[in-house]
């Protein structure tokens, strides 16, 4: 079932996959900003979140991103939703409208706040899973390295970080396999990963973590030697095999997301002063 895990890269050739990784990363950032801003009034917030949600659904369909993974993420969020709700309800708020449960005042604003947080987290999950599902790890590191280039000017070793990231991504499947094999091996020694008291659970986790660490260390030692033998020097200049051809559509999408970025900030700032939703309704009076 691992193949349906959320955000796992699936090598199709859709327009979403073809979009330049740099554009997709910028899109991620601007959408995140748009999602985390408040726009002044409750209905307007929900309208904007709803629009972003619809846009993301379309992107998922185009990019053949699995809905199953996202659905599973919602399932996992249940517990957190209730927790956030309780937290918001119990914290005293400024006031406003409320209803009573027994003697307890429940403010509508605390319910809205809970919904905002849940919506934002959920949208964020969708955005990241679309990015990771449609962008190969190689392209992703390439994009990040490119976008972080300015940091090189203040002597941050961006290329080395990009290499570290690429290697980490490359070794995720290998370490996953290691983990699975270890779980089976320890299960054969009577370890029960699902049940048992806290103390036993800590022991079972230890029986996984320690061997996993030692094998990861061994692998990285081997890898470092192999890399050096193929001429890798973190300080030296290297050429890049993967080149990206920037296309007109990339430029258009880049502009689009920059507009979203600027627009959402403007809307949020102005939203603090004017109630756009009310103004909109007033038009029809």
């Amino acid at each position: 079932m691992r193949n349906f895990a959320m955000g796992r890269y699936r090598p199709y050739n859709t327009p979403m996959h073809r979009l330049d990784a740099r554009v997709k990363i910028i899109a991620l950032v601007s959408l995140m900003v748009a999602v985390f801003l408040g726009y002044g009034s409750v209905p307007l917030n929900f309208i904007i979140y709803g629009l972003i949600f619809l846009g993301l659904v379309v992107a998922m369909i185009i990019g053949k991103v699995s809905f199953l993974g996202v659905l599973r993420a919602i399932k996992a969020m249940w517990f957190m939703m209730i927790f956030i709700l309780l937290f918001n309800v119990l914290i005293p708020t400024k006031g406003g409208d409320y209803f009573l449960i027994g003697d307890f005042k429940v403010y509508y604003s605390s319910i809205y706040n809970t919904l905002y947080i849940v919506f934002r987290l959920f949208l964020m999950l969708m955005i990241t899973s679309i990015l990771t599902a449609t962008t190969s790890p190689m392209d992703m590191t390439f994009g990040l390295e490119f976008l972080l280039t300015p940091l090189k000017w203040i002597k941050v070793p961006v290329s080395s970080f990009a290499m570290i990231l690429a290697l980490a991504l490359r070794f995720i499947p290998t370490l996953t396999e290691d983990t699975e094999r270890l779980m089976r091996a320890q299960a054969s020694r009577g370890v029960d990963f699902k049940e048992g008291k806290l103390k036993e659970k800590i022991k079972s986790i230890t029986s996984l973590i320690i061997p996993l660490f030692s094998s990861a260390l061994m692998r990285s030692g081997d890898l470092a030697i192999a890399m050096e033998c193929r001429g890798y020097d973190p300080k030296a200049k290297r050429t890049k095999f993967r080149r990206k051809n920037w296309r007109i559509s990339d430029t258009l999408w880049l502009l689009f997301f920059l507009v979203i970025f600027g627009g959402s900030i403007a809307l949020a700032v102005l939203g603090g002063k004017y109630d756009f939703f009310q103004m909109f309704l007033d038009l029809f009076k």
Partner: peptide
């Protein structure tokens, strides 16, 4: 496993070439 550096076969063969500029 421990000497496969690139993400794909292509990238792995390219790794040494990248180092050699």
């Amino acid at each position: 496993d421990n000497q496969f550096i690139g993400a794909t076969v292509k990238d792995d063969i390219a790794f040494g070439l990248e180092n050699d500029c």
